[in-house]
Nucleic acid binder design. Structure first.
Lengths: 193, 193
DNA sequence: AGTGGATCGAACCGATCGGTACCATCTAAG
DNA sequence: CTTAGATGGTACCGATCGGTTCGATCCACT
């Protein structure tokens, strides 16, 4: 049956729906862990539609990763903004937000880091690098507001704690990872100003 | 031509040679980034020999990862042991050792983390988890010798710095990563005793 | 009413994959 | 010298992969 009986034909919506549906599947199975055929079955679209919208499997992958990076980065910035003016509170907001993702049953590590390890080709690695730059911007901002002597250094150290907590939560268990990293971050913050 | 003209026929040596030669190739290309046929060409062995020794591509992968984890873990423990009794010096030895690997031109991140992200199936993930436990043992040891109030906590925080430094060095550039992480680690060490 | 575009389902394509089989040839040991 | 086992090279197998094509069908717009 071509075209679902009650479905609305709207290319924009179709594209967005594919993106939303493909994101968790590619995250769970890995970029190469699922073929285009099975992926289309799961998404409820035909291969022709997928290829018309994204051209290539890699095109879909890039779109998914970009959207994910945008969403996560925005969520983190929002959490920081909602935490008030105190840099210590902002740090708490950051690591609380990460702990919430660590505790999700589907958590499998940072999607961007996983993607870079899987397709270690330039286009994907560039997205991961940009993702990390965005994190770094947020963290350096906190360091600056805290009056750190070397905000760039403290920001990078905080980035290491964020990424380290993610890795440890992925491979050594999520319990307490956010809190342990937060306590370390507070110590660094207190010592840097 | 079967059997190289001057080669020694010694199954043990052949197996070890395959392991040694396959390790950098699988690291550089990714576990799924190279097929068995090309891999065998690079290693200079026939597919039959490879399959006789390792049974499966996954068997080879597991053997490579185990050997790599053993080697890296031992090198880290040796570096710590050679640093003398001062926990601060031992920390320096740890992060200096990591910085040296970050600076290698072939550096592509932690091989075990990459593997877990690529083949995210249980056998490989278990190896990565064990690898991380080994790191943790070494770091908790340093925390204990430093007289930390909660050595398990400090050890886990140091693990986050180690893994975070690795991730940042991989995706944001190796320059100074080890040193920045070391300074953070020293701060934590000083504050924890 | 009718036209054009979006979609589905399925068949199909060439390439590549992991893995197996076979045989000629060489080494190692008796 | 002989024999058993290890190896290289090559061809081969079935499965799967990303991607293309085609026709039938349905929606959206005029």
């Amino acid at each position: 049956m071509p075209v679902a009986k009650g479905s609305t034909i709207d290319p924009g919506r179709t594209r967005a729906a594919i993106l939303d549906a493909a994101t968790p599947v590619l995250y769970e199975r890995g970029l190469d862990g699922i073929g285009v055929a099975e992926l289309c079955t799961r998404l409820g679209v035909s291969k022709e539609t997928l290829y018309r919208h994204f051209g290539t499997k890699d095109g879909l992958v890039r779109a998914v990763l970009e959207a994910r990076s945008d969403r996560v980065t925005r969520a983190l910035a929002d959490a920081v903004a909602a935490a008030g003016p105190d840099p210590a509170d902002q740090l708490t907001a950051v690591f609380d937000a990460f702990q919430r993702t660590f505790d999700e049953p589907e958590f499998r590590g940072c999607a961007l880091l996983n993607a870079a390890a899987q397709h270690h080709v330039e286009p994907v690695r560039a997205l991961t690098a940009r993702h990390m730059d965005r994190y770094l911007d947020t963290l350096v901002g906190i360091a600056e507001r805290a009056g750190a002597v070397d905000p760039a250094l403290l920001g990078r150290q905080l980035l290491m704690l964020v990424e380290g907590a993610t890795v440890v939560a992925t491979h050594h268990g999520p319990t307490g990872a956010g809190d342990h990293a937060l306590r370390a971050a507070r110590t660094l913050l207190a010592a840097a100003s």
